[in-house]
Design a protein around this nucleic acid. Sequence first.
DNA 1: CGGTCTCTTGAGTTAAATCAAAGGCGGTGG
DNA 2: CCACCGCCTTTGATTTAACTCAAGAGACCG
Lengths: 246, 246
Amino acid sequence: MLLTSYNRERTAATLLHEAEPETLNGLFSRQPVEFIHPGQSIFFEGDEAKHVFEVVEGALRIFRIISDGRRVITGFVFDGDLLGVSLKRNYLYSAEAIVGTKVRRLTKKNFEAAVQDSEELRPQVFERVCDEMAAAQDQMVLLSCKSAEERLCTFLLKHLRRAAAKSDVQSMVQLPMTRQDMADYLGLTIETVSRTITKLSTKGVLGCVGRHSVKVIKPMLLAQLAGDDDEYGWGDAGAAEDRRHH
Amino acid sequence: MLLTSYNRERTAATLLHEAEPETLNGLFSRQPVEFIHPGQSIFFEGDEAKHVFEVVEGALRIFRIISDGRRVITGFVFDGDLLGVSLKRNYLYSAEAIVGTKVRRLTKKNFEAAVQDSEELRPQVFERVCDEMAAAQDQMVLLSCKSAEERLCTFLLKHLRRAAAKSDVQSMVQLPMTRQDMADYLGLTIETVSRTITKLSTKGVLGCVGRHSVKVIKPMLLAQLAGDDDEYGWGDAGAAEDRRHH
DNA sequence: CGGTCTCTTGAGTTAAATCAAAGGCGGTGG
DNA sequence: CCACCGCCTTTGATTTAACTCAAGAGACCG
């Protein structure tokens, strides 16, 4: 609602028989790009969910403010991600740019109409929603029982994989968000985040380069410290020790 | 895979033009009912997600076992709920009956075919998935920053509302799960759950009746202690105090 | 009625939060 | 280009809510 262009939008029918390979992101390709300044919001928790957004470039934080004024970040979205797909009537969270960000939008109505009519698009939406659910589950596991160090390592590992997938410079991870953002995302305080990063740095797992990027020196150790053991253990099933928390 | 009946199933086409009002649960109405004993699983994390289940009666716990043997319960499902809708290829969690439970199943293939072809069913699935996402978000908020007391009150309140919606006896809440289940769901230990319930009981908020049900005596106070302030505060916007955690 | 399993209660420990202050990065203006 | 200022981050000291360990009490079953 703070945005400038009230974009003229193509109808669902127009959207359809145009793009050749029919990708979800393709739906947005003719929409005007909107620039969001750092700290600016694209919608607020409780707003009517009128639009679906595609992030073209940049990064946003997705968060809720709870009764006592604290902020919980439920996720970050980056270029290529969609925002606002799995919502009924209202946004359940606010979305705010972390850095200068470019987005495109479609009305929810047009987005859904286009998806409904396409045999190709429907499974793509389904897949995105499933991924979102899986991420939410992982986050619940993290918040339920991981230690501060495990949380940070899990977080960094996720971003390392993102970077690797985009074939960026090996082992360099860009972290556009602040320490406070990480704290609010990981269910920790800023001090604990800072101390834990320092500790990982001291251990030689990683090296900080400025405030917003780290170089991962020992990715294997990082993965081990994350405590996921990616996909249930390494075969020694039934070794349910009596470990409890942390 | 532990189940007995390898049900003959109607085809998607057959499923469709039969039920008059076309509800999601209606899809399952002709499927055979399967009985699940307490502690028995209907599927395991990692299994190929072949079926979608409708819970007819009873209660199940949905959980993951993490590398060190601990269990994280990501949700409970009760009668009327569907299980296995928002999954791609494999189950992300195990599902185990808490008490004697009745379920019906459809192959994922048939379920999805039936849904795809129906203008009435598609939005119903979408709504269920949205509710699931919303529940996951709420749980993240709970795990991120709520105290033990707030967690328990939030949990009890949710179950109180369930009971109220089913027009059961006012203020009596059935809790079929064990204290350990609650602990694994709320990110606490069994001792903390027990102590917190005792404290709430001492305060006169509720009274325990046996192990598996409580009588809520002061529902308003319970809601207050849950710390949700259902939908961002009561108007005093901008009163972001300097409160931090718990 | 006795056994087993679950739950409660107590005592002590700990990881992370809180409170407090110093350090350093980045932007601005002289 | 450099000095200053503000904000973010780091580091230190202390507190605390929840965890761990341990033992006893109560519910439910045959």
